[in-house]
């Protein structure tokens, strides 16, 4: 059985995108170690509601580490100190009795705060809309086994495709760059024969949308890779660079 812990929780509160935010401090008592971080926030919110106060707003949905909805910058780490896990998969047994836990929203010009810990990540959708797809008409596909794909390529494409679009890469990056996100999609599709046809157009379109939306330039610090809950490799960024430079040199 996990032991219970008590700690100080500092949570960012902000009423709206334009409002000034501040930290609010709460004392959390006897939280069981097998409580997930988000369940701990549920407990906090129940407390707040019982005091007739407004609960802390944060994004969350599947609570099993796959939807990419949860965010939270915990003690200096996107998705908290655990590696290869999202905030919803972070358990309180990672923390110690007496700790101070600071919870902040993703901070990046590309992700403005909506309220408290909730940020607006529609920029990612816009980047996807710019070219993160293969143009195939419903019902027009040939038999799935007609094009053989070497297993290593398929596996590598799968690794890139496991991106959950949570935005931790941008949150971790001192440049607020979305390169890991963009490169994961460009890589996945560039590795597959079906996606090769549009590879050049896709790399250019997605990158220019990323730039347009105010994300920064990649300076290869690798913070994104270290904080990515799905451990997406920066080798994807190298591939994006390659695809992009190739496309530009061809033009």
């Amino acid at each position: 059985m996990d032991k219970n812990i008590s700690f100080t929780l500092k949570v960012w509160r902000q009423n709206g995108p334009k409002e000034k935010g501040h930290f609010e401090t709460f004392q959390m008592k006897d939280i069981p170690g097998d409580t997930s971080f988000l369940e701990m926030l549920d407990i906090l919110n129940e407390q707040l509601i019982s005091e007739r106060k407004e609960p802390v707003v944060f994004d969350h949905d599947c609570r099993e580490g796959i939807c990419g909805m949860c965010s939270l910058y915990i003690n200096g780490y996107p998705h908290g100190p655990a590696t290869g896990a999202t905030t919803c998969q972070l358990y309180m047994r990672r923390f110690n009795d007496g700790d101070t836990i600071t919870v902040e929203p993703w901070r990046s010009a590309g992700f403005p705060v909506i309220k408290d810990l909730m940020v607006d990540r529609t920029a990612y959708d816009k980047i996807m809309q710019a070219g993160g797809y293969i143009s195939v008409r419903t019902g027009s596909a040939e038999d799935a086994n007609n094009i053989l794909i070497p297993k290593p390529n398929a596996d590598e494409a799968m690794d890139a495709a496991s991106c959950i679009g949570c935005g931790a890469c941008v949150a971790a990056c001192k440049n607020g760059s979305a390169m890991l996100f963009v490169s994961a999609k460009v890589s996945q599709l560039a590795l597959l024969p079906q996606g090769k046809v549009e590879a050049a157009r896709r790399a250019k379109a997605m990158l220019s949308k990323m730039d347009e939306l105010g994300f920064g330039n990649c300076t290869n610090t690798r913070a994104c890779e270290a904080e990515c809950p799905k451990c997406i490799s920066i080798s994807n960024i190298a591939r994006l660079n390659r695809e992009f430079i190739k496309a530009k040199l061809k033009d």
């Binding site: 293969i134 195939v136 596909a141 799935a144 086994n145 070497p150 297993k151 799968m158 495709a161 599709l189």
Partner: peptide
């Protein structure tokens, strides 16, 4: 048709060493 459609969209289904 669903499998055909998804493969054409770039869904990285698991494959055998032969590529199928």
């Amino acid at each position: 048709s669903i499998i055909d459609q998804c493969v054409a969209q770039g869904v990285p289904f698991a494959r055998e060493y032969g590529g199928t």
